[in-house]
Design a binder for these strands. Structure first.
Lengths: 214, 214
DNA sequence: ATAATACTAGACTGTCTAGTTCCATATTGT
DNA sequence: ACAATATGGAACTAGACAGTCTAGTATTAT
């Protein structure tokens, strides 16, 4: 793993590593890992897809596992969800609708679905991978939305006991995903009908408000 | 696949296939598939684990895929969930609690978690596998519980519009699984604390009753 | 220019894999 | 007894894989 960002070391000479190649490798590997899984992807295929020699792959990433973790890491960082903070909350119902729409847009994105699948299948052999994904993905999302709910409680618009804030957050999200997430994960459908989803989310938010609105 | 149940063919002679060996192969394969996934399991390993020659494995199951599907099929058949029908419903809240407890007991069973994981990871390459699992597993569970709710509506104890019965069923189940299922699937924890789960399920059922009780 | 490093192209090792085939032996129905 | 089939054990094919190595070429800082 000391193969990357040696650029910063002073007194370094010779031809520098190409960031462009590193990125090409990462993109190629991500594409293959998400499509074919960890074991289904060979380093030769990564090199071929990246238009690079295998040696170069190993020069940037120590081994297959390192490369895999780097791919997941990059994807998780890319799909951030800290946007619940900036939602206009003048109308609470509308704000919640916006939030759950953003949430499902993220969760039902085909690439995110693929990440879920591949992380799940490799999480037995690599427990730290699951933490890496979970802590930087779902957990951050949950925290952001939980914080929004806490603010609404503080503003006197929701009635949620402090010790139930996390429960209520998960409840809102679980009600929002409905049956869609499993259908997508299992590949039984490859996209969600927009109007069907919108109707579903309205019910979920209304039920949530029934439980917690002041 | 014409390798099995040739027993029924009339005029058959010679040494019959051993059902015991077939079962040993199935058990060994199931164990390995659930622990190491489809690609992570070799037919040699299955033969070794079953205490049987590879030839015998191929004599009972045409190929690796057939064997895999047979394993999933057997597991799904074993973990049936048609028990919602027989629940004593004199006390509705208690009946719902019993049902969601049975549901989570099933869903959080370590072997069921392993089946979810392996089916998910192989569902891209084998879409019919996902259907096999989904139709005979989660879908049957959902139907059983949906039917129970329908009866309670008929008895005038719940108020759920007919077109929302499925929505309400999924809602109850999604609220019940909470964050536990993901933690288990990702291997972040390997069991659920009983009292924590019990408290969670009480809240879920109470919320459900708040929404739908007459 | 020179030294240091990155990169390509490919050969190569050692290991694993699925699937097939051969043959000797075991077990069964007729 | 006999024919038919199952089984064990092992060899074999044909190929994939991760990772290493070499040798030549390209690029860069000094």
């Amino acid at each position: 793993m000391p193969n990357r960002s040696d650029r910063s070391i002073l007194g370094r000479t010779g031809r520098p590593k190409s960031e462009a190649k590193a990125e090409a490798i990462l993109n190629a590997a991500t594409k293959l890992f998400l499509a074919k899984g960890f074991q289904g992807t060979s380093m030769d295929a990564v090199a071929r897809e990246a238009g690079v020699s295998k040696q170069t792959v190993y020069s940037h990433f120590a081994n297959k596992e390192t490369l895999f973790v780097a791919c997941i890491d990059a994807k998780v960082a890319h799909y951030g969800f800290d946007e619940a903070a900036g939602v206009d909350d003048s109308d609470l119902r509308q704000a919640l609708l916006t939030i759950v729409h953003r949430f499902t847009d993220l969760l039902f994105d085909s690439e995110v679905v693929a990440v879920y699948r591949v992380v799940l299948s490799e999480s037995t052999g690599q427990p730290q991978l699951a933490s890496l994904f979970f802590d930087n993905g779902p957990k951050r999302t949950k925290s952001a939305i939980c914080e929004f709910l806490r603010q609404q409680v503080a503003k006197g618009r929701l009635r949620i006991p402090k010790e139930r804030l996390l429960y209520a957050t998960v409840q809102l999200l679980n009600m929002s995903v409905g049956i869609f997430q499993w259908s997508l994960l299992f590949g039984l459908q490859d996209s969600v009908d927009d109007s069907e989803l919108a109707a579903h989310l309205e019910r979920a938010v209304d039920d949530f408000l029934t439980l917690y609105a002041v």
